[in-house]
């Protein structure tokens, strides 16, 4: 097995162009498990840890550009206020050791339906900046996941960064696991309220072949908030609206039975998580007005 160690981003893209079969490795929290279990025997590894640019993040044009090698631990400690949903998702990932190594871009590259970051990225409407020797393009998060552990990237492309807009409203993230830490999601749900564009974002994890949104739930809730003037009045949400939102989120899922949980449980849990997340997010929205924020 060859081990490629580019020192710069340009060299990394050249190496990937020359060896499209090279498996990129940054935190290694997925790749090393595959190697250790003998499930992964790539001809080449492409080590990205020497490419310093990938470890930076910036804020520009109302969005965070999160470099591909920024760890979950740094998302939590440095970006908790700017990327609240993603930070909440990051807190649920693995152990402190894993959070110190693992990256959001790694989650995207693996594109597992159970990846913890995906529902938060979907709810926030993120964009994935991918690059190759041919150039750079931005893939909207909605178009990124194409199948179980498949994504929209070409063989010669690498993830450069993830772009996530700064929040204009509250965000929430919930994940079900069968123990209280260090667990793969049985089902997960991300929610973002976007009062600036009077929209609602959702993301569902571990309950379909790919991470996905719940468009009917988003449209229903945005419509209710609009038609009842709730964005402005910040009045209490009717119970029926919360319940219907939960039902529509659950209806968007297409889960399977597996060792981690039954399909029926996943659907049920999504409806509960969606109701609770909306309740908490709306309480935050009402509170933020009271505090004059």
């Amino acid at each position: 097995m060859d081990f490629l160690q580019p020192a710069t981003w340009a060299e990394a893209l050249e190496a990937k162009a020359a060896h499209p079969d090279a498996v990129p490795i940054a935190g290694g929290t997925d790749v090393m498990v595959g190697l250790n279990f003998g499930h992964l025997r790539p001809a080449r590894l492409l080590d990205l840890t020497r490419v310093a640019d990938l470890r930076d993040w910036q804020v520009a044009d109302g969005a965070v550009r999160l470099g591909a090698a920024v760890s979950y631990a740094r998302v939590i400690s440095e970006l908790g206020d700017r990327l609240p949903g993603l930070a909440m998702a990051s807190r649920t990932i693995g152990s402190p050791q894993i959070r110190n190594r693992g990256t959001v871009a790694g989650n995207l590259a693996t594109a597992s339906p159970a990846g913890d970051a995906h529902p938060a990225l979907l709810a926030a409407g993120a964009g994935v900046e991918v690059a190759s020797a041919r150039g750079t393009r931005r893939i909207p998060i909605d178009d990124f996941y194409t199948g179980v552990k498949r994504n929209a990237m070409d063989d010669d492309e690498l993830i450069a960064a993830v772009h996530v807009a700064l929040p204009s409203g509250p965000q929430q993230y919930s994940k079900i696991g069968t123990r209280n830490a260090m667990v793969i999601a049985v089902a997960a749900f991300g929610l973002a309220l976007h009062p600036d564009r009077r929209a609602v974002g959702t993301g569902i994890g571990s309950a379909a072949p790919t991470p996905r949104r719940a468009p009917a739930a988003e449209e229903f809730l945005a419509g209710e908030l609009d038609s009842s003037g709730l964005w402005e009045s910040r009045a209490e949400l009717p119970e029926a609206t919360i319940a219907r939102f939960g039902e529509l989120v659950a209806a968007a899922a297409a889960p399977i039975d597996d060792v981690r949980g039954s399909a029926r449980y996943r659907v049920h849990a999504l409806s509960v998580m969606a109701r609770r997340a909306l309740t908490w997010a709306w309480a935050d929205y009402r509170n933020s007005a009271n505090q004059g924020a």
């Binding site: 649920t92 993230y173 919930s174 994940k175 667990v183």
Partner: peptide
Amino acid sequence: LRDMPGGVSNTTHGEG
């Protein structure tokens, strides 16, 4: 959250 069922996965703030 660490005292709640589900821990920091943020599934309940006391509901249920």
